[in-house]
Design a protein around this nucleic acid. Structure first.
Lengths: 205, 205
DNA sequence: ATACTAAGCGGAGGTAGACTCCGTTTGCAA
DNA sequence: TTGCAAACGGAGTCTACCTCCGCTTAGTAT
């Protein structure tokens, strides 16, 4: 619905007095700053973890702290933006795997991709995913990914490879949980081993 | 500046052969303040979570902030002290369950106790446990609990009720992880359901 | 090209919590 | 009692969060 030339027609449809924004295109500098902040935040989160200083991120992106806060009023907003693309990738992967002729294996592959993804940024990605799962806004990228994963799960269940009663949210949560639990451990094999337990736990028998 | 102040335990487990060090008994006011800080911290952590202000805790305990820091140089030291007793309870439970004649069930009962325990203090207990598991000092209360749990697990494995290859750390970690993952969810059943998956995952088949 | 305007910028400044330092107090052993 | 190390406490410093508001500038209308 993005029109180059803003019109006032939209305003007429609403009951509000003289309101309803004409939906202007954002300024070029705002777009540029926004993407620089996201990029810098991704780098700094990866090094410093979830508690990285927002002022450091602003400095790194070459913007003022006020600018950062206007674009991302809360830390969660920024985190969500950072992982937006990666969530979209998981969605795309799920959709691709729907074509596979081994439903159970396809689901396992997708969940393993979640595992790899969750380990980035010192477990921040896992926390972010859990947060997104909890606050499910209808048209969020996370919700799309969720539905793509749900289709994958439904197919595996229909094929009798995964037990009934398992829900997509449970699976995603468990995988993120494995990451958090293995995070402290110094043994890199830990996450894999725990992940194996999860898969076995949901497998039909 | 890593000089550890004598602790309550040091006073309790006296009658040790005094040799090179004089090993003086701590002052009465120090003992009193220490326990008041731990008690207050437990209450405030439960309400405010892991990020509670240490100054608020000191105020609540009626001591200066400097006193709090002398007793507990880091936040983790304080958290560990708060959960010290609860870890000991889990250890005692494990030892009691060793007498049960249903090894698999005994293990499940113990793990469920871990689940309940982990949920306290807004997931702080779970984080604390994961941290303790990672930094295993030989003679810590957590290490005792670990060994008690390991005995429980070994028995269940010997009875053929739990698959081989599962380690006690894995189990504890998974249970704590389930708590963290279910924490965000608004559904109180979530933790139970995820816990069920973990049990099924490690069960022999 | 010029002028206009509001979207956008940025950083000073107020707030809060973490942690240190050091002068003062006090338990307790002699 | 007295001596003194242990213990206390809070002022002070540092760092990060977040808001507010005057200044700048991109995009548009003339």
């Amino acid at each position: 619905m993005a029109v180059r030339t803003p019109t006032l027609e939209d305003a007429a449809t609403e009951s509000a007095p003289i309101e309803s924004a004409p939906a202007r295109r954002p300024r070029a500098d705002a777009v540029r700053n926004r993407s620089r902040i996201i990029e810098t935040a991704g780098e700094i989160f990866a090094v410093r973890g979830a508690d990285a200083s927002l002022e450091e991120i602003a400095r790194g992106a070459g913007v003022g702290i006020g600018t950062l806060y206007r674009h991302f009023p809360t830390r969660d907003d920024l985190v969500e933006a950072v992982f937006h693309d990666r969530v979209a990738e998981l969605e795309a992967l799920a959709e691709g795997l729907l074509a596979s002729d081994a439903p159970g294996e396809a689901l396992a592959t997708w969940l393993h991709a979640q595992l790899d993804q969750a380990a980035t940024c010192r477990g921040l990605a896992a926390e972010a995913m859990l947060t997104m799962l909890a606050h499910r806004d209808a048209p969020s990228p996370c919700e799309s990914m969720r539905q793509a994963g749900a289709a994958l799960l439904a197919r595996a269940q229909a094929a009798g490879e995964v037990r009934d009663g398992v829900e997509i949210d449970d699976l995603v949560r468990m995988v993120q949980a494995v990451t958090l639990a293995a995070d402290e451990s110094d043994d890199p094999e830990t996450a894999e081993r725990l992940f194996g337990f999860v898969l076995d736990g949901v497998r039909a028998r």
